[in-house]
Design a protein around this nucleic acid. Structure first.
Lengths: 332, 332
DNA sequence: TTGTAGGCGTTATCAG
DNA sequence: CTGATAACGCCTACAA
């Protein structure tokens, strides 16, 4: 196994030209007037292909002082929209000739590790999806010249760009919708991505509609299918069982649908359900899932937001707002 | 915004010592006998913390000729076991002080891009989960000194380590199980991760049990929940509707369960279902999902496999076999 | 115990 | 049109 990889020097020697010349032909960033004769050009390209030369990006990055790479930081996999999100980011990144890598956090500890990696120039820019970042940490990255975009409705961006959603308004609208339809005992599932805004909106809506807040109807840990299923079954057994569930995530809502159906009740007549996130799976449930989700499923704007910052690092911090809405289908 | 980041040189000047000294105290790789006086040590550490120095890994990687990073290449997100997989890999990587990054392929084109990034030293090692890699491409990486582990049951590893599963045997066992239970019209869903082995096992089992292969019962594109749901509904409408579904993926199987229940039929009496992958969600379906899956859900061995290669690049190519089995629950 | 200096592979400036 | 050459930030053999 030959572990030795050809370098510019090898190509230069092989082609009988100087290192500089090879570099020129490979990435013609000569300043406007420089040019290369077709003959040497060919010689060089020939050498490159015969030796199977590929540029060493590590060296290039050191020299250029950037990695031409961005990092998308996800708290976990398995969230349906992450895939679409990443694809949109990658599509834009490609236009800018950037590579996209993903980092998984999940725990606070891992979050610090990723932070460390970024400080060590893992990438020129970061898109962080709602983690537990402290704003100083992100500010520090930004102070190091790393472009940071964070998607979070609560974080106070110190020197970083923030993407927020109008999800709280949409959640409020959802719960209000249930209330005005006459549902009185509305459960709120907690857990999952939109934890914070969700509960706030729920409380606000109950209050505005003069509904009491019953603590048994606020259920923790429903970010995951199994738990949501089981918690729903439990709720069904209550003497005064709820008549609506504001599930706050589509997967939890879908589990609730199954649980209710397995329990022999009808949706939305006996119990209404509203999810959140608007995942495709919600269109094939029976009944189809009423949910709350983003108006646009195209996340290119988030990527452009980052690249704009990358292009122009010294501009003021900005906020990008993405609209959410209530999507009425059959389950409520 | 101060975009200038302190370097070793800055620390050295600030502490009033030489660059080399700083380097020594920060990573004491002095050759056995070298040592640093406590006084300078403190001076240096002080300087480091006051300046907020963080090593520039790009430079370090160039110098050390490795990135101390491994890359896990996923064809897509949203496959339930990927998350656990990545966590296991990261846990091991951490012990070796390696960073883990993820790359998404999905399309052949993206696959080539990731390949390019790797050739440019994105990472020292790769773990590729069943993509459409050609073995020459991987061999080329390996020839460049990049450690490659690929999880695939078909690929002929030229100079790369391969992780295979006994899934084909387990699939065969699953279909045979259906046949011996008396099911005659067994559908096979295609699409998703285990496409290749699945169909082969299905054919073999039908043949061995003298069952005809009915082309209407081989359904493409069932890697995804919606399609599986709809295809199942279609199958139910056939005059001679099937009496069993070998879904080949748990999410497809679960969609089939819903479709069958929505169609008013009973499982497994009217139709039996077997999935594949053994995801947690299969334990809460009604009835619980009979499936085929790995005996062990711990993937550390895969990571160790890679690090072993990293440590010892010149050893012969190897194969790691992971056992799969049929897991009987209620749906078949 | 600490410092000097060369080089990792590229890019870019400046002469030729 | 092409070639030396000096960085980029870090590591390390060797010298002091």
């Amino acid at each position: 196994m030959d572990t030795t990889v050809p370098t510019l020097k090898d190509v230069a020697r092989y082609a009988g030209v100087s290192i500089a010349t090879v570099s020129y032909v490979l990435n013609g960033r000569r300043q406007a007037n420089k040019t290369i004769s077709e003959a040497t050009r060919q010689k060089v390209l020939q050498a490159v292909s015969e030796l199977g030369y590929t540029p060493n990006h590590v060296a290039r990055h050191l020299r250029r002082q950037r990695t031409e790479r961005i990092c998308v930081v996800l708290p976990r996999l398995g969230v349906p929209y992450y895939e679409a999100f990443c694809q949109d980011i990658e599509a834009v990144a490609e236009r800018y000739q950037y590579t996209v890598i993903l980092s998984l956090t999940g725990t606070r500890e891992k979050e610090r590790k990723v932070l460390g990696a970024l400080q060590h120039r893992l990438a020129d820019g970061v898109i962080a999806l709602h983690g537990d970042w402290e704003s100083e940490e992100l500010a520090q990255l930004s102070a190091m010249g790393i472009a940071v975009v964070v998607l979070d409705n609560y974080i106070q961006g110190k020197n970083v760009d923030v993407v927020r959603t109008t999800e709280e308004d949409a959640f409020y609208e959802a719960v209000s919708y249930l209330a005005t339809k006459g549902y009185r005992k509305i459960v709120c599932f907690l857990g999952g991505d939109t934890r914070g805004t969700r509960y706030a909106a729920y409380q606000r809506a109950l209050r505005d509609h003069n509904l009491p807040l019953d603590e048994r109807f606020v259920v923790e840990g429903c970010g995951d299918r199994q738990i949501a299923y089981q918690e729903t079954l439990k709720l069904l057994k209550l003497k005064d069982r709820p008549d609506a569930i504001f599930a706050g995530s589509d997967v939890a809502a879908i589990s609730a649908i199954w649980a209710i159906r397995d329990g022999g009740l009808r949706i939305p007549d006996d119990i209404a359900i509203i999810g959140a996130g608007n995942i495709a799976e919600g269109e094939i449930t029976v009944p189809p899932l009423t949910t709350v989700g983003p108006v646009s499923l195209d996340f290119s704007d988030v990527a452009e937001f980052l690249f704009d910052r990358l292009r122009n690092p010294d501009q003021q911090e900005r906020v990008l707002l993405r609209q959410w809405k209530l999507i009425l289908r059959g389950s409520a």
